[in-house]
Design a binder for these strands. Structure first.
Lengths: 64, 64
DNA sequence: ACTTTTTGTAAATAAAACTTTACATATTGA
DNA sequence: TCAATATGTAAAGTTTTATTTACAAAAAGT
């Protein structure tokens, strides 16, 4: 599962720590997701979605 | 997190076992998600989405 | 009424998501 | 160049998602 979090952060001038803070997870979790170590839970995906005003499908791409 | 899986199954005339089969999880997992015991992972949410040709947001509703 | 199919549920286990602490490296900026 | 901020990563632990086996109850079909 690919994601555009790094770009979205850049566009919104946010650090990993800020994004973590706004979505209620740890900075390491954001880093791990950006680095593709694991996928976020569905609830967390919804929080990204609301924060960036984008559909989940516009943030995450299910490869395969 | 609410979901419309039960209704979508009904509309598509599927049993929990069939949905489980088509999305690659166990029947108990489908039952638990329908009953609200837990939320699906993001990858599983994408599989429901593709199967029913609906956006994740049209299947799952993030209450709160 | 009886049988088959479907749904609900439970317990034990496994796997994935996420936390905390901690430290190392990279980037920015004074 | 030095200090501060941001990012990458690792290990150990907790929580959440999912599996397997198994059985009971409800619904549907004959």
């Amino acid at each position: 599962m690919k994601n555009r979090l790094k770009v979205l952060r850049a566009e919104n001038d946010m650090t990993q720590a800020q994004l973590a803070d706004e979505t209620g997870v740890s900075r390491q979790t954001i880093n791990a997701i950006e680095k593709g170590k694991f996928d976020p839970s569905l609830p967390l995906a919804f929080r990204f979605s609301k924060l960036f005003n984008l559909k989940i499908e516009e943030i995450f791409e299910d490869e395969n």
